Amino acid sequence: MEKTQQITISARMIDHSMAGVRQAGIDLNRLLRKCGIAKELLKQPGARLPLDKVMKLGRYTPIAMQDEMNGLLHKPVALGHFRMMAYAILHAGTLGRALQRAVDFTNLFDNSVQHTFAVEGNQVQITLKRIPGHKIVDNQALDSIMTTLHRFVGWLCNERILLNQVSVDFPAPDYHEEYQYMYYGAPILFNQTHYSISFDRNYLAHKIVQNDASLESYIRRAPLDIYLPLDAGGPITRTVRQLTREAFAEQNTAPTLELISASMQINSQTLRRRLKEEGISFHTLKAQVRRDIAIHHLGNPEASIEQIAAFTGYTEPSAFIRAFKAWTGFTPLQFRKGMEVDEE
C-alpha cells in the first residue's frame, strides 16, 4: 500500500479565515472544540492542522454564520450560492464558456470584488478587483475566492489548470508557504495592483466532463477538494503523470517505471533520476494518479467501490480502501458522502 504523509493545512491561514467569525461575535471556541482543534494552535507560527478537522470547521462555520464566506465580505453570501453558480456553469460545454458564466454570475451580486475574464494573445487572466467602499475583513477572502474558482473549473474538465503566474494585491501573509499547495507551485508575486491568475489559452477549449450527479457529490464533500494538495511538478513529472493516467485508462493496471520510460524512449534509471531532480518518486506519482482517478469516479454514484478499485489497479477492494484512506485521510465512502454536519 502506498504511504503518504498526513495532509495538513496551515493553522495561520485558518486563523485568518475566521476573522469574520470573531467580528460577528460568534463563539469561535465552541466551533473549534466541535472540530477537535485547540484554539492555541491557530496563533502558532508554522503550526498545521489535520485535513479532517479543517474540513469539519469549513462545514460548521458557514452554517453558524449563515454565510458561505464566513463574514469576510461586505455582504453575507447566502447558503446555496456556490451550488447555484456551479449549476449555472455545469453545462457550458467548454472551460472557456464556463469561466465566462462564472464571472457573470458572481458579478451579479456586487459584493466586495468584481471579477474579470480576459484573453490576451495566448494568455488567459482571471482578476479580482476590489470594489471601492466595500470592506474585506481579511485578505484571505481573496485567496478563498480565487482558489475555489480555480480548483472547481479544473474539476469540471478533470484537469489540473497549471498557472503561469499568480499576482496577489497584498503583502505576503504569515501563511505564505501555503500558496505552493493552493496553486500547484506556480510563481507568486505579492504587492501587485490586483489579485489575478494567468494560464495558457489552450485550456479554454477543454470539454466539461462532469454531470449533475458528480456535481452533487462534489458539493456534498465541499470544501474537501479545495484543500487536497495537487502538485503540478516539473515537465518530466507532468509527462509521466499523463502517461500513467493513459496506462490506467487503457488497462486498469498500474504501469511500471520500465513501461513509462520505454514510452518516453529513455532509460528507466535516467527517468528515476530526472523525477528525483523534480522532487518526486515514481512510486509517489503513481499513488497521486490513482488518487485522482479514484476521486473522479467517486463522483459517479453509479460506480461501485469494487469498480473504482479496479479502475485504480486494485484487485481487492479492501486494499483500495486502505490506500485511499492513506492518500486522503478518508475512506472512499466518507469521501463520496461528505461529512455529516448537524445544524445546531
Rank of each mutant, 00 (worst) to 15 (best):
L108E: 14
L95N: 01
L32S: 03
G25P: 05
K135R: 12
A86E: 06
P229K: 05
T328D: 12
R221W: 06
T256P: 01
I293T: 11
Y184Q: 14
Y203E: 10
R130Q: 10
V54S: 02
Q44T: 12
E306A: 03
A102D: 12
K34P: 01
V166A: 08
L128F: 13
I236M: 09
L204R: 14
Y203D: 10
H296A: 07
R201F: 10
Q5F: 09
G20V: 00
L49G: 08
I63T: 09
D174N: 15
V289D: 05
L108Y: 13
I305E: 13
K75G: 10
F324A: 04
L108P: 07
W327Y: 15
N158V: 02
Y184L: 07
F82R: 05
L243E: 12
L189E: 07
R274N: 14
R12I: 01
H297I: 00
R12K: 09
L333G: 03
Q210Y: 08
W327S: 12
R22F: 02
L128C: 00
A294I: 07
G80Q: 12
F282R: 01
F105P: 08
A205H: 13
L79F: 07
H296R: 14
Y203S: 09
L95Y: 06
G25Y: 08
H176P: 01
M65Q: 09
T193N: 06
Q288H: 15
S196T: 00
I14H: 13
A309S: 04
I14V: 15
I321T: 01
R83V: 08
D27P: 01
L79G: 03
E177C: 02
F324Q: 07
L57M: 03
I280A: 09
Q165C: 11
R220V: 03
A172F: 13
I161V: 15
V341N: 00
I321D: 01
A88F: 10
F109A: 09
N122Y: 06
L189W: 05
A172N: 09
A102G: 01
K39I: 14
E178S: 14
S10I: 06
S281F: 12
F330N: 05
Y181P: 02
T147R: 03
A64E: 06
M65R: 13
H115W: 15
K325G: 01
H150D: 08
N158K: 09
V77M: 15
F117E: 04
R83Y: 11
T284D: 15
P255V: 06
H74T: 08
H16Q: 07
T8M: 05
T106E: 03
Q114K: 12
A141M: 01
T331H: 13
G121Y: 14
A38V: 07
Q125W: 10
A205K: 14
N164E: 13
A38S: 14
T61D: 07
I145W: 13
Q334T: 15
K43F: 04
D225H: 07
G71I: 07
A303S: 15
I226N: 10
V168H: 13
M18Y: 04
S198D: 08
G93Q: 00
W327K: 13
N139T: 05
R22H: 06
P171L: 05
S214K: 00
D143K: 02
